[in-house]
Design a protein around this nucleic acid. Sequence first.
RNA 1: GGUCCGAUAGCUCAGUCGGUAGAGCAAAUGGCUUUUAACCAUUGGGUCGAAGGUUCGAGUCCUUCUCGGAUCACCA
Length: 554
Amino acid sequence: MSVPEFNEIVESNDQTEARRYHLESLRELVGNVYPNKFDRGVIQDGITIISNQKATITNVVEFARPIKDKHISDLPEGEKPLDEQRDAANAELNGYHVRIAGRLAVPPRVMGKAAFVHLSDGVSRLQIYARKEDFTVLKNTGDSRLSTLDSWTAFGLFDHGDFIGVEGFLFVTKTGELSVHVETIRFLAKAMFPMPDKMHGIADPELQRRFRYADLIASSLQVEHDGLTTREVFERRAKLISGMRRFLDDAGYNEVETPMLTPKATGAAAKPFATHHNALDIPLYARVAPELYLKRLTVGGFEKVYELNRNFRNEGLSMKHNPEFTMLEFYCAYMDVNGMMDFSEAMIKESVQKATGGSLQVKYGENEIDFSKFERISMMDAVEKYALEGRNPHGNEGASSSSEKDQNDTLPTGRVSALFEEYVESKLIQPTFIIDYPKSISPLSKASPENPNIAERFELFINGMECANGFSELNDPQEQYERFVDQMKEREGGDEEAMVMDEDYIRALSYGMPPAAGIGIGIDRLVMLLTNRHSIRDVILFPHMRPERREDEK
RNA sequence: GGUCCGAUAGCUCAGUCGGUAGAGCAAAUGGCUUUUAACCAUUGGGUCGAAGGUUCGAGUCCUUCUCGGAUCACCA
């Protein structure tokens, strides 16, 4: 196997050569060009107010803003503050020393004997102002510092994207922008590659996903953008997930982790990834769902239990499908499907608000999705409402619609679910629970007490996408055994996705499982809705891509 | 897997009817001590995704391939 040269990875061109030259020149001036740490802080009168890890650029900007606003506020666009306003602000701001660190968010604007540049911590940016013969660069090897002349030379070797740490005092410029008047600078790390285009970021979706780090840099350095930046998408994703965790924790749920590598791929109708354990010499499968493990835990006495983690399905990729995706599954003892719909609706509403910053309405493409109300409609009624438009689902002209409900148990379920998938799903834009599923397509679900052919099961559709799936859990081991046998028959009949017999699960149910309801919520799809992203690959940091191939391997 | 679209400088993109390869940003050099998409001047930078074909001549037309996007079928 041939190992590529460093210069093949960091491709040599005029951009990288310039940066390489700057790096070597800096090494001669400051010694170690990749120092191990930099202490940050905000200091007044020699007393540290905000120290070290908390003194991000964002925190420093938030700290200084009210001080500036006291003297200069509501400045109209393009207007400069009055001299006396600025003097008053600076009289106070100059008393604060700050040590901040960040990435050069722009190429330095050097004007002969003074320079401006913005530093970014990924969220906020803060301008620094360095004046020739007015600051020094600290050496990173030894305790000494450069002469002011060498310091100015070193400053000229900083590139857009480098990391530096600076110490200085706060002030506002003539244009009213909060800035740091630099006294000392420490070089922290070099960017060998040029930064993404400041106006357009990374435009090619392949490169956005393949080089997500560069895409994230672009979203913090880009000057203007429409909608959420890539960074904001993943911040919103994190807020949704933490909102859900908090909601469940507060409701008394236990978070657990069940096996990712399982001897049997069960719990969902899906094709698994297969692997092999060498020491045990057995096949293992990446899990397709944690469902049966979580229900074993309800047998074991965890009345409320959840797992928020990845599932793996060896199926096609699409706008809505990634080989690994994140699912929240939870189970609650003594609850039925109706209680579960109530609870999960409340949970989704609250965590959507946490994610959006309070709003229950989000724009998704042409649609506005309103999370404030969730409709509930049976699959049969949905088919009548959206698909048949007056025709009856049996194909018998003249049958009245009132009699159709009574005939649910005699309907060919294949026809209903086919009609549903073909005509109804795409019309379910607003959050809608579809209820009353045919039992035959719900092998882990309990039957309705009113109708033995209907499963107490629901799926939540939003913008035509299935976002959640829940039911009253089947806890009769004998019936579960028979359902597994039926599944195995379908498997033998050629259905690769039909479930396999899980003997230990039957054994677990035979110890007694309380009545319970459960749900699985597709987190990625929910994040798509909340961030107006139309491909699941845009809400997964590192989605699956074909591996890169080098020229000599082709 | 089917269909449609795309790949040109480090980045974002033009490139007309087949006739000398272009711009902005970025880079380099010089100027500028409150700029902010800094500005002014100068300079360098190209295997036009790959291979083959048609042609006097191909970024442009044709074929095949690679990668990506959109869309359809299966999956959540």
